[in-house]
Computed example of a mutant assay.
Amino acid sequence: MTEQNIHGYRVADVPVRGGSMRCGIWGPQDPAAPVVLAVHGVTASHKAWGLLAQALPEVRIIAPDLRGRGRSNTLPGPYGMASHASDLAAVLQAFDVETAVVAGHSMGAFVSVVLAHRYPSLVRSLVLIDGGLPLQVPAGLSDEEVIAAVLGPAAERLGSRYESREAYRSLWRQHPAFARNWNLLVEEYVDYDLTAGEGGLRPATCYAAMAEDTTDLNRGTALPEALGALAVPGLLLRAPRGLLDEPNGLYSPLHVRSWEDKLDWLTVQDVPEVNHYTILMDSPGAGVVAGAVAGALAAAGPVASGEAGQ
Results as ranks from 00 to 15, higher is better:
E187T: 03
V303F: 02
L263M: 08
A48I: 02
V268T: 12
R180E: 14
G200M: 12
L266F: 08
V14I: 15
C206N: 14
H105T: 02
Q54A: 14
L56Q: 01
D282M: 01
G18P: 11
R173L: 03
Y251F: 15
L184Y: 00
L75K: 09
P240L: 04
E307T: 15
G24W: 04
L37T: 03
G228K: 07
T195L: 13
N183I: 00
A33N: 02
N5T: 13
V35T: 14
Q136M: 12
P57A: 07
R69M: 09
D96T: 13
G159S: 12
G41Y: 07
I129Q: 02
P224Q: 04
S283N: 03
K47E: 11
D282Q: 08
Y277D: 03
Y162H: 15
E156A: 15
W182L: 09
S142R: 02
G228I: 05
G152T: 08
I6A: 09
S258Q: 15
S170Y: 09
M21A: 06
T99P: 00
L122Q: 11
T74Y: 03
S106C: 08
G77E: 12
L243N: 03
A296W: 07
H84W: 01
L171V: 15
L135F: 05
G132S: 07
R202C: 13
R241L: 10
W49N: 00
A300H: 04
M81R: 07
L56M: 06
N248K: 13
P120V: 02
P233W: 06
G104F: 03
E166G: 06
P253S: 04
D270T: 14
A298E: 12
G24F: 05
V59C: 11
A48K: 00
M21S: 01
L227C: 08
R180S: 14
T99G: 10
H7A: 13
H255P: 06
S170F: 09
G309H: 10
A103Q: 01
V97G: 08
D282Y: 01
S305V: 10
S164P: 11
E163H: 12
A154L: 14
E98V: 13
L66Q: 14
R219S: 12
N181T: 02
T221M: 02
T221N: 04
A290Y: 06
V146P: 08
G50C: 01
V101G: 02
A300V: 02
P253I: 07
P253Y: 08
P224K: 09
G19R: 08
Y192V: 00
G197L: 10
H105V: 01
D216P: 07
T205S: 15
A308K: 09
M210E: 09
G291D: 14
L230G: 07
V35A: 10
M107L: 15
R10F: 05
E58Y: 05
Y119M: 00
D130W: 08
P203L: 15
Q4W: 10
L151S: 12
L236T: 06
A286D: 11
D264K: 13
